[in-house]
């Protein structure tokens, strides 16, 4: 048991070190690709962290991502860089707490609907604020951050998110989340403070999403609300986590990597039919892989093993 744990940790560290060294061996195109991919890996892990166990389907991803990106755009001239990320994270945290306090008492379906429109709401409020109060729509970001710098930050953030998920899965908090997902009445009767746990997790996941937005923002140079709050980001994150399996540690990564590459390829080759294909992929995943690809593979394997074991039993 402990040696297996040691193996896992060693494997994890090896992968992180290899990925850290990557920029020294590959060209700028690969770095750009990897920035996009790591962004979605971090988003999908953060999404699954909250929505996987609690079964609250959140479509608020881009609301927080956008808040991060926009905060970066607003404060990039007035704040030094690391502080900028801190401020962005704090704004994301504050919004998450307000939204969470208001909506986490709602039944699941109302939560989906609320988060469905949250990004649009935030976008409209920011637009209204910019047009009426500051009088500018659209901002420039000039920060001395290199693509490699962004890549390393996103790598660190993804590794952090992954490690947190891993720790939660092994802790009492992880068990509490599973119980909440199964039956909230039992959870409450066993002494689990449901509202507090949901809120804490929602906030944690939201802060990670906000940071992804804040770290990626300098890549755009120019930001306006319709770019920062592009709803497709929420949809992609959701579908990635679902494809891999939102209840598994590796699930979000297994979903984010292939789907990111697929959608990169699609948007390069079929820009006009992108959304149709996105929808079809979505429907296929819901129908064919409702519990994610990892679960599918695992079930398939146990099936084959039991099928192979059965004739042997008959002979005996």
């Amino acid at each position: 048991m402990t040696s297996r744990l040691l193996c896992q940790i060693t494997g994890f560290l090896t992968i992180i070190i290899a990925l850290t060294a990557l920029p020294f061996f590959v060209g700028p195109y690969t770095i750009t690709l990897m920035i996009g991919m790591l962004g979605y890996v971090a988003l999908a892990i953060a999404w699954a962290m909250f929505s996987g166990p609690t079964r609250y389907v959140s479509l608020a991803t881009v609301a927080f991502f956008g808040i991060g990106a926009y905060a970066c755009a607003v404060f990039n001239e007035s704040l030094p860089y690391p502080l900028l990320l801190l401020v962005a994270g704090l704004i994301g945290l504050a919004v998450a707490l307000v939204v969470g306090l208001a909506t986490l008492r709602l039944a699941g379906v109302y939560f989906v609907i609320f988060t469905f429109g949250l990004a649009e709401l935030v976008r409209q409020l920011v637009t209204w604020f910019e047009v009426n109060i500051t009088g500018t729509l659209g901002r420039y970001i000039f920060l001395p951050v290199t693509p490699e710098g962004i890549y390393w930050q996103l790598l660190a953030l993804s590794a952090f998110a992954f490690a947190i998920s891993w720790l939660i899965g092994r802790s009492r908090l992880g068990l509490a989340l599973k119980v909440i997902g199964e039956d909230e009445v039992v959870a409450a009767h066993c002494g689990i403070a449901i509202a507090r746990i949901k809120l804490a997790l929602f906030a944690l996941s939201a802060v990670i999403m906000t940071l992804v937005g804040a770290i990626q923002a300098p890549r755009w140079t120019y930001v306006e609300p319709s770019i920062a709050f592009n709803p497709t980001i929420s949809f992609l994150t959701l579908i990635m986590a679902l494809l891999g399996g939102a209840n598994r540690l590796m699930g979000p990564i297994m979903g984010a990597v292939p789907l990111f590459l697929l959608f990169e390829w699609l948007s390069a080759n079929f820009p006009n039919h992108y959304s149709i294909i996105l929808g079809l992929v979505f429907i296929t995943i819901v129908f064919v892989l409702p519990n994610g690809v990892l679960d599918f593979v695992e079930k398939g394997l146990t099936h084959r093993i039991t099928a192979a074991a059965k004739p042997a039993e008959v002979q005996k």
């Binding site: 009492r172 068990l175 509490a176 599973k178 119980v179 199964e182 039956d183 009445v185 039992v186 959870a187 066993c190 002494g191 689990i192």
Partner: peptide, 19 residues
Amino acid sequence: RALPSLTVVENVTVALAFG
């Protein structure tokens, strides 16, 4: 009200962990 996808011992552990 069982927690169907948890094991039997996990079902009991829940009450210990948060009790």
